[in-house]
Design a protein around this nucleic acid. Structure first.
Lengths: 343, 343
DNA sequence: CTAACGCGTGGTAACGTTCCCACGAAGGTC
DNA sequence: GACCTTCGTGGGAACGTTACCACGCGTTAG
C-alpha cells in the first residue's frame, strides 16, 4: 500500500504558513522573509515534498516537456542527436519524450498527436513527408532537424554543414595527394545528393580541378548500394591507385567490401573516404577515415533553438553545425611516396 | 498569435450538452444515447478537440507516461531496448521519458527525481549502483533491466538468458568442430563474468569436456581488453587452429585485431565467437559470428511487466529473454575438412 | 497628523478533467 | 394509481498548483 504524496498544503501546514506563502518560498520569490523561506524549505524537506509537474503544467500552461520525433533511435546518428537533446534539456530541467517514426508519415502524425495531447511545450522533428501538412497544423512551437529539413526555408531548423564537411574532406584528400576523387553518391531523387555534388563541384573549382572530370557513380544509401557502385567504378576507372569519396559511411563500407572482393586492398590500391561518422567505421579493416556529422551538437542546438521559439524570440532560420574529420586508415598517403603506391 | 486550445467545455457547448455528458461520450461510456454520443463526437471533431493529458493525469492520478533510465542511449544495445519499450508503450497509448545515466549514481538519482516530479506511472531502470538506495525510496512501480539487475532477486526484472545463450554458442561451436573453446571474459569483479563462466562450465560437462581444461583469459570489457587477452592467448596456446569465445562483441573485435596483428588470419587460423550482437559486428572483416542479446524484446517485455506492476498484478521475479545466433564468417568449419585447416 | 506606499502574507479563483450524486422522465410492479 | 427502478443527463467538487487581489502593518512624505 502506497501512501499519498505530500502536497504543497502539507508543507504549508507544517511550516505554519498559507499555501500561497509556501508556493512563493518554494519558487524562490523575492518578497518573503528569509526566516519564513527557510522554515518552508525545511518543512518541504521534512515531509519529502516534490512539486507536481502535472499540476504546474495545468496551471501555468507549461508542461516542462519537449518532444523529439526522429526516424529511428536505433540508428547511431539519431541516437546521438537524442543524446545531445536530452543532455541540453536536462540542464534546463526539462524532460524529453522520444518517438521513432520509421520514416512513416502515418507514424509521424500519430506521434505528433501524442505530443499535443501530452501538452509538450514544443517539439523537435525530423520531417518525413515532403509537405509540412501535419507540422502546419501541429499548432506548437517546433524546430526541424536533419537534412530533409532544408526544404523548408522559412522555419527554424538545425543540420550539419555539408559544404564545410565537403571542404574538410577535399582538403584532407589533397593533403594526402588525392586530387580528383571518384564520387559515390545517393540516388538522383534525393536532395542530399544534389547538395553534396554542388559542394564538391564548387570546391573542385577552387582547387583548380575541372568538375567535369569527376567520375560519379550512384546507388542506394546502403551497404549494397555502395558495393555495387564501387564495382562499377573498378570496372571502368581502375588505373593504379584510385580514390573514392562516398556520400555516406554505409556506402563507404560497402565499397570497401567490393575492393576486397576484387582482390584489391584498401588503402594500398584504393583509398576510401566516408561521410557520417558511424561507430562501425572504427571496426572495419582498415578503419574508415570519414567526416563525422555532429549529431550530439545538432540535438543540443535544436533544443536551444526550440527554447527561443517557445519564448517567442526571433527565429533562426537554418543553423549549420560544423562536421569534423575522423582520420583512421582507409586513405593512402600519396604525397610522400607517390611512386611506390601509384605504380 | 496562437489561439486557445479547445476544451471539453467548448465541445459540450457546441453539442448542446453538459460537460459531464460530453466527457462520457468522449470516454465511450455505455449509458448514453447513440444520438447524443454522435453529436458530441461530431462537435469534438469540428472544434478540433484533443484531450489534455495533463488534466487527465491530475484528476485520475495516471499521467500516461513511463520513465526509462538506461546508461546511454548512444550504446546500440540500450538504443534497442529503448526502441522496444517505446513501441510497446505506444501500443498502449503511453509516452516514454528517456534518460541516460552514464553509469553515474548521481545522474541516476537526479533522473529518478525528475521522473517522480513528472508523475510518471512507473519506470524501467538499469540500476547502476550496487545498493538499491534510490530505487527503494523511488516510491513508484518499477522494473529493472539488464544484467546488473540480477543482484536483486526480489524485484521484477527482465534480462537476457545467458545460460541459453551460452548453450546456443557452444552447440554452434561443436557443430563446426570446435569442442573446447578458449574463453575471453571480463574482470573478476564483474558478476557477469561469473554467470558466463558458470554457464560455460555446466554445458561443457554436458558435452563431456572437462571444464578444467578450458583456458581462460580476462580483461576489461573493451576493444583493448579483448586485444590484450587474445595476444596472451596466442602466446601461450597457439597450436594449429584455435577457437575463442568472447564474452562480449567489443572484446571479440579486439581479439580479431590481435589475430591480424600477429599475422594470422580469422577464421583460417583462429575462430572467434562473440556475444552481444552489436551492429558493428556486421562490418568487421570477417563478419563476426555472435550471439545477439534481444534488446528490443527486453524493452518490450519490461514495459509489459511494468504494466503488471502498476496494475498490482503478482510480480514476475526475473524474466529471461532468449538470445539468438547471428552466423557470419568468423568461425572456421572444422567438421568438414579438418585436415586442410588444422594443418 | 493623515495619506500614501511598500512589504509580507493570506484567501480565492482558475487551469481541464473525471467522479460522484442528484434529478426528471419513462417504464414496470403491486 | 402510488411506488420503485432504470436510464440519460446535469451540477458540482476535487486533483495540486499558480496568479491575482486584498489585507494589515510599519514607514515615510506632504
Amino acid at each position: 500500500m502506497r501512501k499519498r504524496r505530500p502536497t504543497i498544503i502539507d508543507v504549508a501546514e507544517r511550516a505554519g504558513v498559507s499555501k500561497s506563502t509556501a508556493a512563493r518560498a518554494l519558487a524562490g520569490a523575492e518578497s518573503i522573509l528569509d526566516e519564513t523561506r527557510e522554515r518552508v524549505l525545511a518543512a518541504a524537506k521534512a515531509v519529502g515534498y516534490e512539486r507536481n509537474h502535472l499540476a504546474v503544467g495545468m496551471r501555468s500552461g507549461r508542461s516542462g516537456m519537449l518532444g523529439l520525433v526522429i526516424p529511428d533511435i536505433t540508428n547511431p546518428f539519431w541516437a546521438d542527436v537524442a543524446r545531445g537533446a536530452q543532455d541540453r534539456a536536462a540542464e534546463a530541467d526539462v524532460s524529453l519524450l522520444v518517438f521513432s517514426s520509421d520514416w512513416d508519415p502515418a507514424k509521424e502524425e500519430s506521434h505528433l498527436r501524442a505530443l499535443r495531447r501530452a501538452r509538450v511545450d514544443g517539439a523537435i522533428v525530423n520531417p518525413v513527408s515532403d509537405a509540412l501538412d501535419d507540422l502546419d497544423k501541429f499548432g506548437l512551437p517546433f524546430v526541424l532537424i536533419g537534412s530533409s529539413a532544408e526544404r523548408f526555408a522559412d522555419v527554424s531548423s538545425v543540420g550539419s554543414d555539408i559544404t564545410q564537411a565537403v571542404e574538410l574532406g577535399l582538403d584532407h584528400l589533397v593533403s594526402k595527394g588525392h586530387h580528383a576523387p571518384n564520387l559515390i553518391v545517393g540516388p538522383k531523387s534525393r536532395l542530399a545528393r544534389t547538395r553534396f555534388l554542388n559542394a564538391v563541384q564548387r570546391h573542385s573549382i577552387e582547387r583548380n580541378v575541372d568538375p567535369a572530370q569527376l567520375v560519379i557513380e550512384d546507388g542506394e544509401y546502403t551497404l549494397e548500394g555502395g558495393r555495387l557502385a564501387m564495382l562499377r567504378l573498378l570496372d571502368r576507372a581502375y588505373v593504379g591507385h584510385i580514390c573514392v569519396f562516398a556520400a555516406n559511411d554505409m556506402m563507404a563500407i560497402g565499397a570497401m567490401m567490393a575492393v576486397r572482393e576484387r582482390g584489391l586492398r584498401c588503402p594500398e590500391d584504393v583509398s576510401i573516404l566516408g561521410f557520417d561518422g558511424i561507430p562501425s567505421g572504427a571496426f572495419t579493416f582498415p578503419g574508415l577515415t570519414t567526416i563525422a556529422k555532429p549529431g550530439r551538437d545538432i540535438g543540443a542546438r535544436a533544443v536551444e533553438s526550440l527554447f527561443d521559439e517557445i519564448e517567442g524570440r526571433p527565429e533562426h532560420g537554418r543553423v549549420y553545425m560544423p562536421c569534423r574529420l575522423i582520420d583512421r586508415a582507409s586513405l593512402a598517403d600519396l604525397s610522400r611516396e607517390p611512386r611506390k603506391l601509384a605504380g
